[in-house]
């Protein structure tokens, strides 16, 4: 039960912090922001990799590998494309 409580607190605190931070982001950074948070949401890659920490049968292994690949595509692609976009913003 205490685990659940900790998880709820983490969830609520993170939501509140996210809310406070994002409200101040200027409109011109909305696309890079979305693209970066998109990459962060692929933190499911943690869960996908941890699947490999216990024994699985072959069909499960295939599904787990697919999960790792998909999450990696999202996280690596997300941060790369965000970096590219931000590099274009220039001040003369």
């Amino acid at each position: 039960m205490s685990d659940l409580l900790v998880m709820l607190v983490v969830f609520a605190a993170s939501s509140a912090i996210g809310y406070a931070l994002i409200s101040k982001v200027p409109q011109r950074l909305h696309t890079p922001l979305m693209s970066m948070t998109n990459a962060i949401s692929a933190s499911t890659i943690i869960a996908a990799l941890l699947l490999f920490s216990s024994k699985m049968d072959s069909p499960h292994k295939v599904l787990a590998a697919a999960a790792v690949a998909l999450a990696a595509f999202n996280v690596v692609g997300g941060f790369t494309v965000t970096g590219r976009m931000l590099k274009m913003f220039k001040k003369q």
Binding site: M7, F11, S14, S15, S23, S41, A42, S43, T44, L50
Partner: peptide, 26 residues
């Protein structure tokens, strides 16, 4: 992602997911 974190009881995943969920909602 946040609920995925609850399934595997991983605080970091819950936090990352929740930040994204609230930012997307804003």
């Amino acid at each position: 992602a946040a609920f995925c974190g609850i399934v595997i009881q991983n605080r970091l995943l819950i936090a990352c997911g929740a930040v994204v969920a609230s930012s997307g909602f804003i």
